[in-house]
Amino acid sequence: MNDSDGGLAVQAVGLVKRYGKVTALDGFDLEVTRGSVHGLLGPNGAGKTTAVKILTTLIQADAGTATVAGADLRRDTQEVRRRIGLAGQYAAVDEILTGRQNLEMFGRLFHLGSSRARARAAELLEQFALTAAADKGVKEYSGGMRRRLDLASSMILAPQLMFLDEPTTGLDPRGRGEVWEAVRALVRQGTTVLLTTQYLEEADQLADRITVIDRGRRIADGSPAELKRQIGGDQVEVTVLERTDVAAAEAACAAVSELTPLVDPDRRRVIVPVEQQLDALAEVARRLQAAGVEVEDVGLRRPTLDEVFLRLTGHPAEDETPAQDEPQPEGVAR
């Protein structure tokens, strides 16, 4: 056992994973503080699942090292497995068995023995509000219930560290709320949670700290507030009528923010994140008017995840050409 890791539940350095020509992880680093909820945010194919699979011992990295829950990932694999819980991208429970039978089976496989496995199953069913449905087949469960059973199955040994891979993808808002509540309950018990998500909102709701991953690399890291200040706050968006006015609009936007505006000449659009939203909006409008620019639309908007990625990486999430420069979270690469 090695607990001299400075309060880190996960410390990964330079993880690399290749699938043939695809590089799923390309020197990925991650530090997760004990007792925190850490969000791993990234678009489709960014490498979130690959990172989780490596850290939960399901696949082996081609390069890099990691300490997970105080145990070395390569040398102490079984110890890592004893200390972590994993809820994968799809609720991994047996559909034919009942909720209770699932939990009892997993309890036996976690080596609790049959009587403690039974007792633990009852506890978890209670904790995740599944007692009423305990003896129904999982087939009859709703998406949210299934997810909760999945979380309960990962919690059998009350692990110090839980991995949740897109825990709410595919759930309706109600199911999403149920899962969020379950995650918060985990955290109250002192469990460290690493959760991946494609939704900025989810990371914002749950996480103390967020790592943004893109193309297998960490491109930003910080508290939600810090990241939002960089990328996620309100933004002023101006669409001008004439393409020739784009430059003037850019100047007007540049004047109200410390950040460089994003310019999309094809759509005759300029976007800039701002802090004092209303003042900034008024100021932009005033400047546009003074410059005699004809405007199609001007307003305040929350950035979409795509824009967040555009700002962080200098390329849209689905763009396949690699970014030329080092990521510049503060500015813009165009």
Partner: peptide, 13 residues
């Protein structure tokens, strides 16, 4: 397909 195999593989069994 359901991820049950991966769950088993992530456990200390």
């Amino acid at each position: 397909e359901k991820g049950v195999t991966d769950r088993f593989r992530s456990m200390p069994m």
